[in-house]
Amino acid sequence: MSRQNALELAQLTKKYGETIAVDGINQLIASGTYTCLLGPSGCGKSSTLRMIAGHETVSSGDIVLAGTNITDLPPARRGTAMMFQNYALFPHLSVIDNVAFSLKMKGIARDERRAQARTLLELVDMASYGDRLPAQLSGGQQQRIALARALITSPQILLLDEPLSALDPFLRLRMRSELKRLQLSLGISFIHVTHSQDEAMALADQIIVMNGGRIEQAGTPHEIFDAPRTEFVARFMGGHNIIALDGAKYAVRADRISLASVPLAAGRDAVVKAIEYLGTTVNVSLDMEGAPEITATVSDSAFFAAPFEAGQSVSVAWQRADAHELAA
């Protein structure tokens, strides 16, 4: 991960009147990486992306790309390209002219720009659709065209605003792997805004979790999931129990909690409330002192080797290293 062509956000702030959408965030995004901005709606992730793209003015702070301050540059001169949530394809232009649009704006002759657009269409496997209108394409196909149109400007960074949210679940999975493949083969940075943890974990080299206009935590998917730094991250990523002990709060992964009907070393007493069978795993809901609502995820083989029942008293334990203290 080189710092050379990195994108740097410094004290980046966006205010809409009195409301603060993005609150002085600082972040380094290395070049050639896949980064996901993750958070619930209204957390400031889209505003951040749109500021990087240049479609939203920056209230204060700077955006630096490869050593150049691009904060006040127009969108097309930043080295970024954006893929819009609803794809924003021009409905009156054929697929090939949509892809060639930015070249037309630069005044490149028709034959040349079409030839270039054709190579981009080949990249996204849409070469045979050049003459169609966007309305004649399916959602997934429209997305490929939007990708090709954004990539024809040879951006250093591709910005994707919830690119998969308009697709059905099956297509979403397919496009997800295709985005990753494309990012690896092009070697440029992708910054992808999403509210789906699964999407972020599957795609990202780096996840930036945002909440209330601030960055809660940034790190690799493993870091974020395994050791959430705040209660918000633990709850938002899911699969964690928040346990209050000795005046502090800890996050413990549900699958790191051991259960036994006999007392465990350093074990705590709890009562089984409910059991949820999920196939490969079983979720056991427990009522424990200091944590009235915790879940232990047990593999199905372990569960059926020694099943529990609702109402049963059990002993709950976890490794010390698995309990991550949360920032207040």
Binding site: P74, P75, A76, A81, M82, F84, N86, A88, L89, M105
Partner: peptide
């Protein structure tokens, strides 16, 4: 007209007149 079309055009480097 979807306003994001105007943004998409700006993103592609189109001037106001374009």
């Amino acid at each position: 007209i979807d306003k994001s079309l105007v943004e998409a055009a700006r993103d592609a480097g189109a001037s106001g007149l374009q």
